[in-house]
Each structure stands twice: as C-alpha cells, then as structure tokens.
Design a binder for these strands. Structure first.
Lengths: 332, 332
DNA sequence: GTGAAAGCGCTAACAG
DNA sequence: CTGTTAGCGCTTTCAC
C-alpha cells in the first residue's frame, strides 16, 4: 500500500527553525551543554515540528545499530516465551528495540542468524545457544557483545568462557527433585533429556549416586514426536521404572501422554517430576509436580547484563523451586 | 564485553581488491548487470574478504530500515507465540529481521511502540491492534505499511479500512460451537469474553438468537486474575448456566480453575468450549473441546502480505475448527 | 557555547 | 558496461 510518504523532518529543519547549527540541535537533544536560551529554542522547534531523530542516521554514524538481538530455540515453547518476555521488559526500560530469531535448536540456523546480526551491525545479543559455540568466537572477536541465557556452551575456546551467562540453578533443581523422589522410596528413576542438556544429565547422575542406572537416561530431540518416542520407549522397555524426571515441558507432556497411552497411572504406577512450571501443569490430571524455573527473570537479567557497560559477573545462577502437586507418590 | 572491534570490511575494500568501482560492486552484489569477468572478480574479492554489506549504509541510503516489526499483546500467550512463529518463519524466507514489541493490550503502549517504529524507519509492521486504531492513521499516512493480524480495528477512519487483515473466522467458529452446544440440549450458554472481543461477542449473540441472555455474557481484562474473577463470578451468579464458551485460552484456563474451585464438574455440571487449541487442552482433565485457530498461519500470511508489493486482498479469513474432546456433555 | 564540515557505507543518477 | 559522485541524517572533532 506504500503511500507517497512525505519527507520526514530532519535535524536540519529543526536547526533552521531554531536559528542554530545542526550540531547544537544534536547536542541539546542528547543532553549536551548549551545555554538555557538556546536549549529552549531548540526544544521548542523540535516540538513544533514533531521531530523524531532518525535512528538510521545515528546508527550509521555510530557504526552500530543499537537494540538487542535475541536468539532462542523456539518461541512457542513456554519457557522461551517467558524468557523473551523478560528481555522485552528490560529492553523497554532502555527504550531499545528487540530483534528476535529462532534457531530451532539447530547450530546451522544459529550461525546463519549470527551472520545476519553482524550484517545489521547489531552489537548486543542475548542467546540461548544451541551448538557447541564455535561459531560465537569470531563474532565475539568482531565486537559482538553476547550474554548467554538458560544455557551456556561447552566451549574450549577462551573467549567463550568469558561470555556472561544467566542460568537457572539446574543442578540444585535436579538434586532437590531427586531427593524428593528417593525420599518417597523410589529407586529406579529415569531421566528424559533433550539433546544438549548435558548439565542436567550430569546433575542427575551426581544426585543419584549409587542408584544410577545409565539405561534409564534417554535422550530426545526437540520435536514432539521425538519426545513422545523417547518417553514411550522408556516406559515400555523398563516396566520396573517407578519415577521419571522430565527435562523440559515438552518431555513432560510426552511423558503424560505416553503414560496415558500405555495405561500407566500417575502417580500410582509412576511418579513424574517435570522441569519447568507451565500454566497447564496445574490443570493436568493429576496436577504435575514441577521444578519451576524463573524464565522471565532469566531473560530480564540477561538483557540487563547485555545493556550494562563494564565489568560484569561471569555467571548469574537463579534459583529453581520444587513445586509439589499431585504427580508423585510413594513407591509401590 | 565490547572488544576492540576491528574495522569491518566495506564495499570500498572489495572494489579495491577487485580493481573496480564501488558502484560495480554494489550492482554485482544486488544482481545488477555486469560482464561475466567483472562479476567473477567482484564475487571473488567479496568471498576472499568475507565481505558482508552493511545494512546500516543501505538503510540510510534507502531511507528505510527493512525488516518487519511485529506488535502483539503478549508473547507468553500461546496464540500470539504461534502467530509470532509464523511471522518469523515467513520473514526468514525473505531474509528479513523481525523486531518485536508487546503492547500488553494497552493502546498507550501500542502508540508508543508505533512511535519508536517510526524512529527506526521501520516501514513494515504486522500488528495485533489493541486500541481503536486512531493512532494508526498518521503512521499509515507517513508511509508505514501495516497488516493487521488476528483482529482488526474498529476504525471510522478511511485509511484504516484499507489496511489488510488476516483473521481467523471467529464468526463461523462461534456459530459452530454454539450449534454444537445447543445440539447437546444446552439453553443457558454463557460467554466469557476479553475486552475488545466485540466480534466474537457479536457472533455469539447472532448465533444464539432467541436463547440470548445478555446477563450471561461477561467481560474480563487480559490478566489472569481478571479472567478468574469473571469466570468464578459467572458460575456463582448463575447456577442455572449449563454451558460456557471461553473467548480465549486464558479465559478457558480460568473457567476450568473456577469450576474446580466451586466444585462444578465438567462436563457433568457444565459444558465448556474454549477458543484456541493449546497443547494443554488435551492434557486437561477432562480434555477440552476447543475452537482451534490457525495461529501460525495467521502470522505467516500476515507477514507475507506485508512483504508483498502491490494489490493485496483486504481481508484474509482463515478457517477455524471445532475439535471435540471431553469437556461437553448433554444438558442434565 | 556554538557552528562548519567531515564522513560513517551504501546506492542511484549520470556521464563516459 | 562501468566509474565518479552526490548525498541519506546524524554525531563529532575542531576552530572560533
């Protein structure tokens, strides 16, 4: 529909009307020094002309496009939607626009997106990294300011270790959940993990100690189907299983569905703890016991870090919380 | 951590290495005409130097920043997350970045965001409008290319009526649901609406005909609390109610929770149909009968329209589908 | 305290 | 077919 679009008001127009040079307008508008009278004249003219400084001009001049880029695996996943919400909320307070890209948990797409960030001269990015992180190194060297959120990458590169990360305290979350389950008498506890959740799996191993049975740890890809297959497979293969920890809400959903399908009753036949508290956890039957993660906080804090200049903490660990509902019972 | 950031390769570097003028480089890279030999030399140099054209320079020159802006009420709401996913998916095929803003369904914030779009010289926006749409008129006149998604605005302005909109066929959805419920024998059917769902309410009135009881239509704001209050209020005030249509997933959730709290059994005491099929609808107890909306399609189509030049349809109506699960029963 | 002028990287108009 | 050049709107020296 692209209308004719009249020329927009520029700094030159304001300068002219105020009877000053453009430099003065620029200074006044960015809070520089100017005599009271000049300031008033400039502000006045700007208001009268409804002047909006063009981000385009500024960006080119400053060689950076401002704003925050956000890279997440999947916007339809509640946890990342909440994270995004946190980023947006922080960005808004800085009046910075947020550009979002979804990686589908695919390192290749991620690399592609990082490339386009560079093309846009974006220099601040909050990312939930998917790959091994190799791709980040050149970008970081090129001056990109990165903060990881929700996960960090397993990088052997030096630069990667210096990237700040805002994470949920998975380790504690897993430990608490495992202790809760063992406290209920469970001995055969399974773990449904997504590929790339090395951290959680490791925590699971550590928390289980002697009880560990590697065969009870299964991995799935991010897709619904893969999650279901993993869950159903585990339940069928190991009828001795008495409890399951699901590494994410998709996996939890898959576990509920698979259990229903296989006529495994929760919590009578199987106890279930799911990572991530989603709205439906409470509506589910039975209501699901979950390890809640502060998704929106993670996003907010990450955005805050990426906006902040200077020295920053290398890692921010945010607490998780075990919310006990009705999906766990004593071992039968 | 804002590293030293070496100067990036520019078109000038490429031109120099290829031994041609910058204009030639620009032409070759944007598919203009050039001799085979020149083209090769340029492409070669570009590759060797790993040249990425700066969007900044191009944007300033073209007076438009490219990319698509997306304005939605709430990214944590499944329906808008799916819509966003559709927009992202389409934008990706055009290799356009997407900038996202959440309005919280607040016209003031929406106006604010539109302002910052203008500041960024964004000229394409897909929006789920919140206000009455007055604010859009000046922006559209200023050359902003708008496509509404999921809703349209109730504008008396001429310009607004020409804005293309991609919508779910709410009217048909409501009619189907109401017919389904009346077919089960229900006569006292309530409607839980969000403020601004005038279209759906109107469709509800039309579909009910003689059965209409205005007192059974209640409105809530977007918040969880407001939704719950509306649902609980309706159930308590009108025990003669035998079925409810919830205008969105938040309202549906509220209805389930309120019913549980008030010991109203679904579907025995109350039949429930919810707008929007969300993953948890199937996990809920009982599984919820829903009017499914193609959220991701809506986003995709809207993005497609905003990218497309020239004549476009004014309205695209996408079908809804009644998915019958277990939350409705015959009137007792 | 203020203005003139340079220039960020790119594309489009024009000349050759 | 190709090179030269003029800016897009802004910020930032550098003189005054």
């Amino acid at each position: 529909m692209g209308s004719p679009a009249q020329r927009r008001t520029t700094i030159k127009d304001v300068a002219e009307m105020a009877g000053v040079g453009v430099a003065t307008v620029s200074r006044v508008l960015s809070g520089g020094s100017a005599s009271a009278e000049t300031r008033e004249r400039v502000l006045d003219a700007a208001t009268k002309l409804d002047y909006r400084p063009s981000a385009l001009g500024r960006n080119l001049r400053q060689q950076r496009s401002g704003g925050i880029a956000l890279l997440i695996p999947d916007i339809t996943d509640s946890i990342y939607a909440r994270l995004t919400d946190g980023v947006l909320s922080c960005a808004r307070s800085y009046r910075e626009p947020v550009t979002i890209g979804v990686t589908g948990d695919d390192p290749e797409q991620e690399a592609d997106l990082v490339g386009s960030l560079l093309e846009q001269s974006m220099d601040r990015v909050v990312a939930v990294p998917s790959g091994n992180g190799e791709m980040w190194t050149p970008a970081i060297r090129a001056g990109l300011d990165v903060v990881f959120a929700d996960r960090r990458v397993s990088g052997e590169q030096r630069a990667l270790d210096e990237v700040p990360a805002v994470l949920a305290d998975d380790r504690a979350g897993v430990r608490t959940a495992v202790e809760y389950l063992t406290g209920l008498g469970h001995r055969k506890i399974g773990f449904l993990a997504r590929h790339g959740q090395a951290e959680r799996v490791e925590a699971f191993r550590a928390a289980l100690g002697d009880l560990l049975d590697e065969d009870l740890i299964v991995h799935a890809r991010a897709s619904r189907d893969s999650a279901y297959a993993a869950a159903a497979g585990l339940l069928q293969r190991r009828p001795d299983l008495s409890a399951v920890l699901a590494g994410g809400n998709k996996l939890g959903e898959a576990a509920v569905l698979a259990a229903r399908e296989l006529d495994v009753r929760i919590p009578r036949d199987l106890s279930l703890v799911m990572f991530d508290d989603v709205p439906w956890a409470e509506l589910c039957s039975p209501p699901l016991t979950v390890i809640a993660q502060p998704g929106q906080d993670i996003g907010y804090r990450a955005a805050e870090l990426v906006m902040r200049q200077g020295r920053r903490p290398r890692t921010v660990l945010l607490p998780t919380e075990l919310i006990i509902r009705g999906s766990c019972g004593p071992r039968r």
